[in-house]
């Protein structure tokens, strides 16, 4: 009964938003240039997808995204394990980290342009830079926070440093690693789009800015919606993979909360 009400209200709210957009846009024809009705956006979006322009830009962004994300994950995870496991290394790198961390990452874009020019390597570099932070810092936290009793237990079973690292510490730190990876997912998308807007000739960020400048508003909205969908799907995929891989962790958490 209650569930039914919730569904009903949800549908109503959704319909209301769609109707408000549609009617608001149709009611002000002088605004259509900025604010096209939804019924105009969808055909245009479908058309730009069919013509291959939107998929091409999207594909370019996705490629940048995947390369940068994989590289950031590699750097962040290995760096995090090293810094988390070896105290002296952590202390060595702590001051440089503290110095760079508070700097808003997009401020590095101009430097990246200086070094890499305005091709894809620049976009990858800046995205890697921004994404590495959460992964690195969370991994360090996770590795350093590994329950000492767990480590002692492994030692009494005669585990070597290698076994300890692979079988205990990495598993114990994995929830934080995953948290870092999840945070970075959103950051990667932001930095790819931002860098494409600032300096690129392809990619979905470039496309959105370009269509906006040419007042091709329906194309622009179409691209924004596609990008929103991409963000949603990436997040959904990550969460479902995470749920499967981390089932033991969430189970134990739930037990503790009781």
């Amino acid at each position: 009964m209650r569930k039914l009400w919730v569904y009903l209200l949800r549908t109503l709210l959704f319909a209301l938003c769609v109707a408000a957009w549609e009617l608001g846009a149709r009611g002000n024809p002088e605004l259509t240039e900025f604010f096209p009705p939804l019924s105009l956006i969808f055909p245009t979006a479908v058309q730009s997808i069919a013509q291959g322009e939107l998929p091409r830009h999207l594909g370019s962004s996705l490629a940048t995204f995947l390369k940068a994300y994989a590289l950031a994950a590699f750097i962040g995870l290995t760096g995090g394990v090293l810094l988390g496991r070896w105290r002296w290394l952590f202390h060595l790198f702590e001051p440089p980290i503290e110095l760079l961390r508070p700097l808003p990452t997009p401020a590095m874009i101009p430097i990246a342009i200086l070094i890499f020019g305005i091709d894809e390597s620049m976009r990858i570099a800046i995205t890697v830079y921004a994404c590495t932070w959460p992964i690195l810092l969370n991994t360090i936290d996770g590795v350093r926070g590994a329950e000492p009793v767990l480590i002692h237990t492994a030692h009494t079973f005669g585990a070597s440093e290698r076994q300890l690292l692979l079988k205990v510490i990495l598993r114990a730190a994995s929830p934080q690693m995953v948290t870092g990876l999840r945070i970075s997912l959103g950051i990667a998308l932001i930095l790819v789009v931002t860098s494409e807007m600032i300096a690129a000739v392809d990619g979905i960020g470039f496309y959105i800015l370009e269509t906006a400048r040419n007042f091709e508003v329906a194309e622009m909205f179409g691209a924004v919606l596609v990008l929103a969908l991409l963000g949603y799907l990436l997040n959904k995929t990550f969460v479902s993979l995470e749920g499967r891989a981390m089932a033991w962790y969430y189970g134990s958490k739930k037990r503790e909360a009781r």
Binding site: R10, G186, L189, I190, V193, M197, G205, G231, Y232
Partner: peptide
Amino acid sequence: FMEMLRPMPIVALIPVIILF
């Protein structure tokens, strides 16, 4: 609705908001 809107990279909205 939140779950749908949240993964949206806000920067993509900058051109839209510039229009308005």
